[in-house]
Computed example of a mutant assay.
Amino acid sequence: MTEQKKRRAYSSALRQEHAQATRRKIATAARKLMIGKGYADTTMAEVAREAGVAVQTLYTSCPGGKPALAKLVYDITLAGDARPLPQSARPEVQAIIDEPDPVRKLARYAAMATAVLRRVQPVHRVLRAAAAASPTDTGLQDVLAGIERERLMGSRGPAEHLHALGALRQGLPAARAAERIYVLTSTENFEKLTEVCAWSEAEYEEWLAAMLAAALLEHPHG
Results as ranks from 00 to 15, higher is better:
residue 198 A to M: 15
residue 46 E to G: 09
residue 124 H to D: 11
residue 153 M to T: 14
residue 72 L to Y: 00
residue 189 N to S: 13
residue 123 V to F: 05
residue 31 R to M: 10
residue 151 R to E: 07
residue 189 N to T: 05
residue 25 K to L: 08
residue 186 S to D: 14
residue 42 T to E: 05
residue 80 G to N: 10
residue 217 L to C: 09
residue 164 A to E: 01
residue 156 R to W: 07
residue 216 L to D: 03
residue 218 E to L: 07
residue 149 R to S: 11
residue 165 L to Y: 02
residue 144 L to K: 02
residue 165 L to G: 06
residue 38 G to E: 07
residue 63 P to K: 04
residue 196 V to W: 04
residue 85 L to C: 05
residue 193 L to E: 10
residue 101 D to L: 01
residue 36 G to W: 13
residue 79 A to R: 13
residue 12 S to M: 09
residue 25 K to E: 09
residue 203 E to K: 00
residue 180 R to P: 04
residue 57 T to P: 09
residue 92 E to D: 08
residue 200 S to C: 09
residue 104 R to A: 15
residue 49 R to N: 12
residue 101 D to G: 01
residue 48 A to F: 05
residue 125 R to A: 13
residue 115 A to T: 05
residue 57 T to M: 12
residue 7 R to S: 14
residue 204 Y to H: 05
residue 216 L to P: 10
residue 213 A to S: 12
residue 119 R to T: 01
residue 9 A to S: 09
residue 90 R to A: 00
residue 83 R to M: 09
residue 169 R to M: 06
residue 178 A to I: 08
residue 40 A to I: 06
residue 23 R to V: 03
residue 94 Q to I: 12
residue 136 T to R: 08
residue 175 A to I: 08
residue 210 A to Y: 00
residue 61 S to P: 03
residue 179 E to D: 08
residue 55 V to R: 15
residue 198 A to S: 15
residue 188 E to F: 09
residue 196 V to G: 10
residue 117 L to D: 13
residue 130 A to I: 02
residue 175 A to W: 08
residue 222 G to S: 13
residue 109 Y to C: 08
residue 178 A to C: 10
residue 100 P to C: 03
residue 125 R to Y: 13
residue 221 H to V: 05
residue 105 K to W: 00
residue 91 P to A: 08
residue 89 A to W: 10
residue 6 K to M: 14
residue 76 I to C: 02
residue 10 Y to P: 02
residue 52 G to Y: 00
residue 157 G to M: 14
residue 59 Y to S: 06
residue 133 A to Y: 11
residue 105 K to I: 01
residue 80 G to W: 07
residue 45 A to D: 12
residue 75 D to M: 14
residue 107 A to I: 12
residue 174 A to Q: 02
residue 22 T to S: 14
residue 81 D to V: 03
residue 210 A to T: 11
residue 49 R to V: 12
residue 45 A to S: 15
residue 63 P to S: 05
residue 214 A to W: 03
residue 19 A to Y: 04
residue 41 D to E: 14
residue 110 A to M: 12
residue 79 A to P: 06
residue 54 A to C: 00
residue 31 R to F: 08
residue 12 S to N: 07
residue 21 A to R: 10
residue 49 R to A: 15
residue 113 A to N: 06
residue 200 S to G: 11
residue 169 R to L: 05
residue 13 A to V: 01
residue 184 L to G: 08
residue 4 Q to M: 13
residue 204 Y to M: 02
residue 172 L to I: 14
residue 126 V to M: 12
residue 33 L to D: 02
residue 55 V to Y: 13
residue 149 R to Q: 13
residue 30 A to R: 00
residue 67 P to I: 03
residue 111 A to T: 11
residue 30 A to H: 02
residue 174 A to L: 05
residue 8 R to C: 07
residue 212 L to M: 07
residue 178 A to P: 05
residue 211 M to N: 11
residue 15 R to P: 04
residue 180 R to T: 03
